[in-house]
Design a binder for these strands. Structure first.
Lengths: 196, 196
DNA sequence: TGTACATCAGTGAACGCGCGTTCACTGATGTAC
DNA sequence: TGTACATCAGTGAACGCGCGTTCACTGATGTAC
């Protein structure tokens, strides 16, 4: 064996992370194998030593994106006060920073349109990501006394995803800010997250 | 002059309508000039007699899509009872039929991700479409006594757009149905649209 | 310890295909006589 | 009214480019002696 056992795995992971960023900022169709490899400091020819196809890499990169998202939503479970946990997640999700950094944030608002058109494998992973996030929100909503925690978590997530998706797509910054603020106000009022 | 004066304009309109459908089902990057022309019963060579470029055609087709959407939301203003109008629009928007027919429905859930990545001209048109629809919902919400009609309309639209976008992207039909139902239940409860 | 060998991650040229765009040509039909 | 002509929407072959994929090759380094 030439390189250390971990060497290949590390390269692969680096490629996946670059891919995950590019997918979020350019969409799955917008990423080019050669571009992702170049960002990882490699040439495109080596790609197939790591992945069977571009499509297979995209499917795996979805996993990487949701791992990132999971990291951010960990705080929901780790914060003792569920109301404060929800408030801080909603604050983050509907923030200008989250809207403006497509390459870093939650994959749901950027990519639901693209994945609606893609293959079953990718859509299954996407569905698992949606469910995982919904379950975390549901736990917190249950803790503050929601009568249908999972259903309300699902509706809450839809509202945040839709608001960020629309806020990113409109050209006018005032309109965009208002879309985020309106969704934020609605959620804070509905779940009494104010001053939490 | 060879063909009647209207002949060319009619052809152009036919091409735009086919393009609007293809954009919604395949995304702007997924549409091919040759494919759209073939659907309109033409060969690809004639395309440039009608449009300067593929991009120019996409920009115009966005207008066509919002014209379609405007047609569907006309009912909100034309129905006498605002609560019934809202209920029927929410029913339509969160229906299985709307989820399953991407090529016909509202362009917001399918395309917000794509337009977040596109040029200013296209995003401006998109923003106008969002605002027009929000204003219609706001009028009805105002009529049923909402305290901040425009803000609540914006939050309501975000929730519907997010729910349809997610419902289209997940693979599992049970999960997908649940996402629509949860958003629907939330809106009906919040605005007392039950049995309207 | 030092040296030869084997491995295989990574290189870079090449191929094929799809697609946007161009262009010389066609032929249906409105107009002029 | 009928006929020749001019126009131009539409045709279809061709071109160039980007990109996914393949493949023969390289060279850094772990292992065996």
């Amino acid at each position: 064996m030439r390189y250390s056992i971990r060497h290949k795995a590390e390269t692969r992971q680096r490629v996946l992370e670059e891919a995950a960023q590019e997918i979020r900022s350019k969409g799955p169709d917008g990423v080019a194998v050669a571009g992702v490899m170049a960002r990882a400091g490699l040439t495109h020819g080596g790609f197939y030593a790591h992945f069977d196809s571009k499509e297979a890499m995209i499917a795996e990169a979805i996993g990487t994106m949701f791992d990132d998202a999971r990291g951010r939503s960990d705080a929901i479970e780790q914060t003792a006060d569920p109301r404060a946990a929800l408030r801080s997640y909603v604050d983050f999700y509907l923030s200008h920073a989250h809207r403006d950094r497509r390459d870093r944030g939650c994959p749901l608002p950027s990519l639901s349109g693209d994945f609606a058109r893609s293959g079953a494998a990718q859509r299954e992973r996407f569905g698992e990501g949606v469910e995982a996030l919904t379950a975390r929100l549901a736990k917190a909503l249950g803790a503050i006394g929601a009568s249908d925690p999972h259903g309300e978590a699902s509706a809450m997530l839809a509202q945040m995803v839709g608001a960020v998706a629309l806020a990113r797509a409109v050209a006018d910054p005032i309109q965009s800010d208002a879309i985020l603020a309106d969704a934020h106000a609605g959620l804070v009022r509905r779940y009494r997250l104010g001053d939490a």
